[in-house]
Design a protein around this nucleic acid. Structure first.
Lengths: 158, 158
DNA sequence: CTGACTGCAAAATGTTTGCAGATTC
DNA sequence: GAATCTGCAAACATTTTGCAGTCAG
């Protein structure tokens, strides 16, 4: 039974993100440009989840602005290279998350205070693999988000 | 151990969708209009998942056209009333699913052809409850999507 | 009658694309 | 030098909103 992927593709995590991006681009005859390295660096140093607009603004603030078009085009490459994960949650737009040297995890999100609790369950992971096998489905990743009220907000809310 | 909710709110599933919508609207001093009933019936008779455009077209074809604006506004009400579920898969737009007398299930989504496979695992559900309890988290629902390649697309892609 | 609803068209998002000039290899 | 990039602005796709007239209660 092959371990299920999580979109991590963290094989080769010993190499730096930059090395990995360089390699990815080279292998496709794409060019290594300052803009792409800027976006990479920005994405790697964002804390937690971020969307395109947030990253754009962060780069602008750190005086290394990049055009919206280049940002979107580069995020595609980073996702393909497995350096970021792209999520489509309940919102109408994509959110990203650095995927470098980051262990797989899922999320509980408090609907009241927005707190995010990470969780991992090997048992759930194993069950997912089983289900995929049963359907001949080759998993690339998954989103598993539980939403509700965290401990604090339950107390406060009573 | 309280069973985890899935955002279904399928309590009162014995009443017809129309009764449930009427009740929902009445309780908020909203009006019961032909258009809203049309959208409701359309949504209930779509097979499987559908998006706004598909429903709009279906209603048009069955000679009960509704404006795009009304469709979107009504889908919000249906979702609030728990009569449909709104999903955000890998695409940039929402897909809906009738939630009337529908048991809880999660999804595998093919990234290539968009096919959606439903799955349920009592074991995973139970593990989720456990995890929530461990964190003192009160779950209201969850999103569990596995994305990857379906059987057909794996073959075709080889 | 009054406030909510509808359709329309315009606006607002979030993302993609065509193009001309700049840049990487 | 050739092919790929970048930024810009325009195009797109989806969803939301303002408004004037219509309709449910």
């Amino acid at each position: 039974m092959t371990p299920i992927a999580h979109g991590d593709d963290n094989s080769g995590a010993e190499r730096s993100p930059e090395e990995r991006l360089r390699e990815h681009l080279k292998s496709r005859n794409l060019r290594i440009t300052p803009e792409r390295l800027t976006v990479l660096h920005g994405a790697m140093t964002q804390s937690g989840h971020f969307d395109a607009e947030e990253l754009l603004e962060a780069l602008r603030r750190s005086n290394r602005p990049v055009s919206r078009a280049t940002l979107y085009r580069t995020l595609d490459h980073l996702a393909e290279a497995g350096l970021v994960k792209r999520h489509h949650f309940q919102e109408g737009h994509a959110r990203f998350e650095s995927n470098f040297n980051r262990a797989h995890h899922d999320h509980m999100v408090c609907e009241r205070c927005g707190q995010v609790i990470e969780f991992v369950s090997e048992q759930i992971e194993a069950l997912q693999e089983e289900i995929c096998e049963q359907h001949g489905f080759r998993a690339h990743g998954h989103v598993h988000q539980i939403f509700g009220l965290c401990k604090d907000c339950q107390a406060e809310h009573s």
